[in-house]
Design a protein around this nucleic acid. Structure first.
Length: 609
DNA sequence: GAGTTTGAAACT
DNA sequence: CAGTTTCAAACTC
């Protein structure tokens, strides 16, 4: 009744005349285009490969969400650009609220793939128009999905999800169709909004599976969980498995594998279905994030509430194929989960029910403390929360096309310092991350199955080896490398020895999108490393421009100066080594894009979202 | 499940 | 910046 804005939005759009062009999905697609047109610089590609493994919202810097205010724009705009509006609303509805992504895909995935979608988008839109007379939602969805993912594989994965939710889809379509016969504009608005929203959620959920935690609000995160189960093998908690196995009742249920998901969907819809006033009110009321978080576990309880010891939990998660890193579950006792000792905190997650931590402060209700602590840590080491493992984005794409392929390159950002484990156990962060050791490592007796630090595995002489690894073991080691013992609970496929991994050395020559590359490395919220991929998908034009400019400036600095960042403790947090062709000839790669993205140390999410 | 080992993080 | 301590995960039994 008192939502004149909604009526206004719908009036003038006779339902009976709804065409694809008029459909919300179409509008949604159209709203994507600005991303490309804003700047000549093809920033879209970088997005796909960037790994904004940035931490969850609560861990992000305030500026990262500066676009919040835009949510107060007119309802008309919201309706016109539902996707964006919804995102913003979501962000606003649960400010600073981040939920541990049980499933994880965290940061690694990234997914806002806007791979030069300008042309693709145009083509897709043309195709859609051709079928405007007889809107084929499946085709539209497929096209949209592929466009979003930029990868047939991911698109396929999404299709998989849709198939699994065929019933839901039918409902969606039915609902959309229903809008054409809606009796009142209000009904149309609600139905359509809901239907489209559901579609948007489906898409967004998958597309941003790795970005969730970076986006304010649990919605995205929970959605990411759900979607990830289908898209990324390495992601998705047992909850997802359970969820996928369950019969979907409706869209909401579809994403209610866990309570998180369910809540997320509801929340996601809320901003759209309610007036802005409601949204604002909800935002305000949402301040008590703790309250919200309490709700989530309840739902989860029905699926996974059985008390499990930390070890069992971890093993359970590993056995489920999610990898150790996909789901952070700590067991901290003294750190209050406010130090990097805590895997959850370090990974940018809030601790949640599965954790067995004691006196945990890493919870939404203590977000202030968490943020303060995070800042403190970042002041000490700007890259403290950056992904521990970075890899060439091209490799990600390859992986996306064929899971059997190995990433072109990957390495631990700081390198390990193993002394006794020979980098053959998960004590070694490189090994744990499924990557080979690099020159950044100070390990001794490196036998990393993913590649030894000196890169002498196959080609180089061990003369230069400083690790102390007996040269007499070379042969044996090489053999081991060729037949690496499957990393325990590490789903990451065997990779070529880092030393041989072709890493683009032309970072400096990278096209504009390469800027993101650098930004991705420094995903930390501090200093110049303030780029968060997730937000890019939600950005308004102005926001994108701002970020683009920042990136340009940043890249300028990065490109023209040796980048060897020393953390306060002198540990190497080197970025330059990736860009120094001369230092690592074996890293050369004629490849064009040399985007680096990170993936969870544990499981490779591969990436997101 | 308890105890040990390990190496990162934190501290001095 | 190096050495030491603390911490929690990884590992072993």
């Amino acid at each position: 009744m008192d939502t004149p804005e909604k009526s206004e939005t719908q009036i003038g759009t006779p339902v009976s005349k709804l065409k694809v062009e008029d459909s919300p999905v179409f509008s949604y697609i159209c709203n994507l285009s600005p991303i490309k047109t804003i700047k000549p610089i093809p920033i879209t590609c970088p997005l796909s490969s960037l790994n904004f493994a940035s931490p969850p919202s609560v861990f992000t810097s305030p500026h990262a969400v500066s676009h919040k205010e835009s949510r107060f724009r007119s309802q008309k705009d919201v309706s016109a650009s539902k996707e964006v509006g919804e995102e913003e609303a979501l962000v606003g509805s649960e400010p600073e609220q981040s939920y541990k992504n049980d499933c994880n895909t965290p940061r690694v995935t990234n997914d806002v793939k806007d791979n030069g979608c300008g042309k693709d988008l145009q083509v897709m839109m043309d195709n859609v128009k051709k079928k405007s007379d007889t809107p084929d939602w499946e085709t539209l969805i497929a096209a949209t999905t592929e466009l979003i993912y930029g990868s047939p594989r991911e698109s396929e994965a999404f299709s998989c999800l849709l198939k699994k939710t065929s019933n839901s889809e039918a409902r969606l379509r039915g609902s959309i169709t229903a809008t054409s016969v809606a009796v009142t504009n209000t009904d149309v608005v609600n139905n359509e909004s809901e239907s489209v929203d559901a579609l948007s959620i489906l898409h967004r959920g998958v597309r941003r599976r790795c970005l969730d935690f970076e986006v304010k609000g649990k919605n995205q995160q929970t959605l990411g969980e759900s979607s990830s189960s289908c898209v990324v093998p390495s992601i998705g908690l047992h909850l997802n498995t359970i969820a996928m196995s369950s019969k979907d009742k409706n869209v909401a249920n579809e994403y209610s594998f866990s309570g998180n998901i369910k809540v997320g969907v509801q929340s996601s819809l809320t901003p759209v279905l309610h007036s802005q006033h409601d949204i604002v009110r909800e935002n305000e009321s949402g301040k008590d994030s703790g309250q919200i978080i309490e709700v989530v576990p309840k739902s989860l309880a029905s699926v996974d509430l059985t008390p499990i010891s930390p070890k069992k939990k971890r093993r359970k998660s590993e056995q489920s194929g999610e990898g150790d890193s996909s789901c952070k579950r700590c067991n901290c006792k003294k750190s209050k989960c406010l130090k990097l000792y805590c895997e959850c905190f370090a990974a940018g997650f809030y601790c949640i029910e599965p954790c067995s931590c004691i006196n945990c402060f890493n919870k939404p209700i203590h977000k202030d403390v968490v943020l303060a602590t995070r800042k403190q840590i970042e002041s000490r080491n700007p890259l403290a929360f950056a992904p521990k493992v970075i890899r060439n984005s091209d490799s990600i794409i390859e992986v996306g096309e064929d899971a059997s392929k190995t990433p072109a390159s990957a390495r631990h950002k700081r390198g390990c310092n193993c002394k006794k484990s020979n980098c053959l156990k998960k004590y070694c962060e490189c090994y744990q991350g499924g990557v080979g050791c690099s020159i950044n490592c100070r390990c001794e007796g490196c036998k990393n199955a993913f590649g030894r630090k000196d890169g002498s595995l196959f080609e180089q002489d061990e003369e230069n080896e400083t690790s102390g690894t007996p040269g007499t073991k070379k042969t044996q080691q090489n053999v081991e490398l060729f037949k690496p013992a499957a990393p325990p609970s590490t789903p990451i496929p065997f990779r070529q020895p880092l030393a041989q991994l072709p890493i683009s050395s032309n970072n400096r020559l990278l096209p504009p999108q390469s800027h993101f590359h650098h930004g991705a490395i420094g995903s930390s919220s501090s200093g110049i490393y303030n780029i968060r991929k997730p937000d890019m998908s939600l950005l308004s034009h102005s926001r994108i421009e701002t970020i683009t400019e920042d990136i340009d400036d940043m890249s300028e600095n990065l490109i023209h100066s040796p980048i060897t960042t020393l953390s306060p403790n002198s540990k190497r947090v080197s970025l330059s080594h990736l860009d120094s062709p001369e230092s690592t000839p074996w890293r050369r790669n004629g490849g064009g894009r040399n985007l680096i993205r990170s993936f969870p140390t544990f499981p490779s999410l591969t990436p997101h979202h």
